[in-house]
């Protein structure tokens, strides 16, 4: 049963990507910005951690510092996109693409011009690793839980609320004295910080950082968001639970991914499948609104009208 055997690995990987998906949730759902920086900042997180660990004493402390540096690098990546968007008036999508491209060069430079860096789990005391998916899973559950708790607290503060308002209604936010540009920058930084941490974790888990590791990351993040929402949106309204739903969405994504692979489908097709899933999940609510709702409404009105006659 290759699929069952691969299950712990899929869950662990899903949990790593859950952190990335939470980052995407912050920009896509809270700030209402589709931020493509993440494809770059994910690899930045991996590259920074990888290079720092292999060039330091290789202790557990260096792993921790490497994680911290990855977080910082992600924050800076978000800052760059934020400034390109708010200071230069460039639409956020384009701002993200520009930063993503900048990061491609930056990431290669960080890795000393090579396309990958190996962080061998036998040489370094990595936090999680593929050879020990079981341990990795519970460690990641704690990390993801902690991140959700912190974000829950943050978005309940005055600053966090003002960021939510910014994403919800710019006009109202400005009228209420909120510095919307600052808030967008903060949100983008937070998001990319998380994404970079996710990339740094994946690097440890798989044992290497790769220049291409973030390619299409945005789609995986969005897939996790839409899957989580599709399954849980009717039942959970609480913010922390929503983030949990997104995390579970990421895990489901990787379980399905494994399953599809175990069916023998060419892995080259996976990115296309992911994109199609996202397009469907994001498109269906729209189609429902434009096509199905008018029909249902007309039907209901007809029914109400005839119902009225019956009663009369």
């Amino acid at each position: 049963m290759p699929f069952i055997n691969a299950l712990p690995g899929a869950i662990a990987q899903g949990l790593v990507w859950a952190i990335m998906a939470i980052g995407v949730y912050i920009t896509f759902r809270i700030l209402d910005i589709a931020d493509l920086t993440v494809d770059g900042s994910f690899a930045t997180g991996g590259a920074v951690l990888g290079i720092y660990v292999v060039n330091s004493d290789g202790s557990a402390g260096s792993i921790a510092v490497g994680m911290l540096l990855a977080l910082l690098a992600g924050l800076v990546a978000g800052l760059v996109t934020g400034l390109i968007h708010t200071k230069l008036g460039i639409p956020p999508i384009l701002a993200g693409i520009l930063t993503q491209l900048i990061l491609w060069s930056v990431n290669l430079t960080i890795m000393g011009g090579r396309a990958n860096v190996s962080v061998n789990g036998n040489l370094y005391p990595v936090f999680i690793r593929i050879l020990n998916s079981g341990d990795s899973i519970w460690k990641l559950v704690i990390v993801v839980g902690l991140i959700i708790a912190l974000l829950y607290l943050f978005f309940g503060t005055e600053l966090g609320s003002s960021i939510r308002a910014t994403g919800n209604n710019l006009k109202m936010s400005r009228a209420q004295g909120i510095n919307v540009n600052l808030n967008k920058v903060i949100g983008l930084m937070l998001s990319n910080g998380l994404v970079a941490v996710s990339g740094a974790l994946l690097t440890q888990y798989q044992g290497f950082a790769d220049i291409n590791m973030g390619r299409g990351a945005i789609v995986i993040g969005l897939a996790a968001v839409v899957i989580g929402e599709a399954i849980f949106s009717k039942i959970v309204k609480n913010f922390a639970l929503r983030l949990m739903a997104v995390s579970i969405g990421a895990v489901i994504y990787y379980i399905v991914y494994q399953f599809v692979i175990s069916l023998g489908i060419n892995t080259n097709l996976m990115k296309m499948l992911s994109a199609v899933v996202v397009a469907i999940f994001l498109g269906v609510p729209y189609l429902k609104k434009t096509h199905l709702d008018p029909i249902l409404k007309a039907r209901k009105e007809k029914k109400d009208a005839s119902g009225g006659e019956d009663n009369a």
Binding site: F154, G156, T157, E158, L159, G160, S161, S162, G177, I178
Partner: peptide, 9 residues
């Protein structure tokens, strides 16, 4: 018009 701090909202 006030600063948005990390106090509870």
């Amino acid at each position: 018009g006030k600063k948005h701090t990390l106090k509870w909202g």
